[in-house]
Design a protein around this nucleic acid. Structure first.
Lengths: 335, 335
DNA sequence: TTGAAAGCGCTACCAC
DNA sequence: GTGGTAGCGCTTTCAA
């Protein structure tokens, strides 16, 4: 920068003014400075700038699993929005471990990110007073119990309710569920939606139709296989995330159980493969890209509010998922 | 930091020494400083540190598509390795656009990242003298023509050769291909491997068995459909990436064409869904996680070499993909 | 072994 | 309009 100033015959202050479009520089000097910058292939050092202005234009994002398409899609929404406004995003994967999550939170703080997006948080550290004072934070996808602001979530209970009702409407009575982790709002809400639908339809479900999965492929596989080996297996299964659905479908395939003839399947989370399967998968499609966009929108609001010393309490954004009815659901055969 | 120094009754230099484990500080003072840091919940400002030492401990990674599982898996390898050594990664998606790619390169430079990982680069900007002087850069997945150092790639030609030979070995003679973009090494090499296998087996292939796809779902769908509508359709299709395979499978499903009875399919890239499909998909599995790990390893070497003013010419790392034979390939029926 | 002070590259304030 | 300069929080000589 000094070199630029020297070459243009001005002060560094002027160069800075040109850079930031302060408008108080004469056209003539502006041109000279720009020429000099070009000639020297000068690119302002954002690090130095950040240090000075106390703002990094970087946000952090923590997800449980980088290679889960669901988070990848959210990330895409986040990243594209960030690009437009000159933000960069540091991504870290927590592997569903609260220690990792906490560590990442510390790292991000040390790097002085302007805010962080926390997907499916598994740690209480996230809403420590201390952490919250460090930087604006918005919860994505899953929200800690009792938190009514600063989160972008989907109405999971409603979505599960609709999905289950779809099965009931087709005539199913023996409807099983493979739940997600119940210590997460996403997992619990989906199960509750399912239960409510059954209750309102006056359907009673045996305990062994409720399988407690953990969002991973293996649990979908294992519980799917178990369900179909029951003396009277379900005629429909509601599976609470994309990974487990993959496991479930694998189990069905191995047992040569035909879907939807022998059993109907409703998955949660749409995925690129959902329409390539035979049969095409009926599932609850979450607006992933939109989640990402809204989350970053809320975070920016919070960042601005923090700058302006406003309280910055953004009420939760609640988005709605849409049931995509395709061919993996049909009437029960032995009705 | 000043506060910590004051509270501990020492100078900031001493605090710094403690932080960096310089070892020249008496145990007594060390303890006092640590106490003070704790008491004030002090976390050193990496931004300031970066400015001073000229090293950010951040790397950038540019991928064409954040939500393609293939890149997501590589990213996972990268990210996990980075965590271990205290690096953070800024992720950007180029959407296969060279303008975006160039812009991200500029941004990353402005942020003074220590190096960048560039996946499937589409832009010549990446190997401009200028860009290369800015920071260590390693190419991942796809390598620009003629570049023999600084890249981590898979031997795509060999992988395609093996995959095609697998089909030939099963008795197929009418083997079609849906290629990727031929302006990328990945795309071209795979087609060449396919061609070599056919040539060596003395099999001649009509031109309309070679479909030029672009790595996206739609092209797999479109060309898959076209292939199967040919007067004499192929008995096997080799499909050059995960996305296009999804499209192809959808086309087959819609046309009620049975795989592998009517046509065998070999995909490129393994995916979580590959073993959940019926039939389970035979495909070329790239060592994605390993690619990520090796890439970051090479980048770090380059970074260190750059620090040490060494030339830092790391020869290309060439990894090998493995053919996963499953049920989507079988003998041709009408042989 | 410890501390004083310079300086990384930038911005913002104030004086001209 | 423009420039001089202090200082963001840290590390790193160098002197004590």
């Amino acid at each position: 920068m000094r070199d630029v100033a020297r070459l243009a015959g001005v002060s560094t202050a002027t160069v800075s003014a040109v850079l930031n479009g302060k408008g108080t520089v004469s056209p003539e000097l502006t041109l000279r400075v720009e020429k000099a910058m070009q000639a020297l292939d000068y690119h302002p050092d954002q690090i130095a700038r950040s240090l000075r202005v106390g703002r990094s234009n970087v946000i952090g994002m923590i997800v449980p699993d980088v290679s889960n398409l669901f988070y990848a899609e959210i990330l895409r929404g986040v990243e594209e929005s960030c690009q437009k406004i000159g933000y960069s995003v540091i991504l870290s994967g927590s592997s569903d471990d609260s220690g990792n999550e906490r560590r990442h939170l510390e790292t991000l703080y040390a790097r002085r990110v302007d805010g962080v997006l926390l997907a499916s948080s598994v740690s209480e550290a996230a809403y420590d007073r201390l952490t919250l004072r460090r930087f604006p934070l918005v919860f994505v996808d899953s929200v800690p119990a009792g938190v009514t602001s600063g989160a972008v979530v989907v109405d999971n209970a409603e979505a599960a309710f609709v999905a289950t009702n779809h099965l009931i409407g087709l005539g199913h009575r023996r409807i099983a569920i493979i739940t997600g982790r119940l210590d997460r709002s996403v997992g619990l809400d989906r199960m509750n939606g399912y239960r409510r639908a059954l209750r309102e339809a006056g359907i009673w479900i045996p305990d062994d139709f409720v399988m407690h999965g953990d969002f991973h492929v293996e649990s979908g596989y294992k519980y799917g296989a178990e369900l179909m080996r029951l003396p009277t297996p379900p005629t429909a299964i509601f599976c609470c995330n994309n990974r487990m659905t993959l496991g479930l479908l694998r189990a069905l395939s191995e047992q040569r159980i035909n879907c939807p003839n022998d059993v109907s399947v409703v998955g949660f989370d749409d995925a690129d493969w959902a329409t390539s399967f035979t049969p095409r998968l009926t599932c609850v499609a979450q607006p992933t890209y939109e989640i990402g966009k809204r989350a970053i929108g809320m975070l920016l609001k919070k960042i601005d509010a923090a700058d302006a010393d406003g309280a910055g309490q953004e009420p939760n954004v609640i988005l709605h998922a849409e049931l995509q009815v395709r061919e993996s659901t049909g009437h029960p055969r032995d009705k």
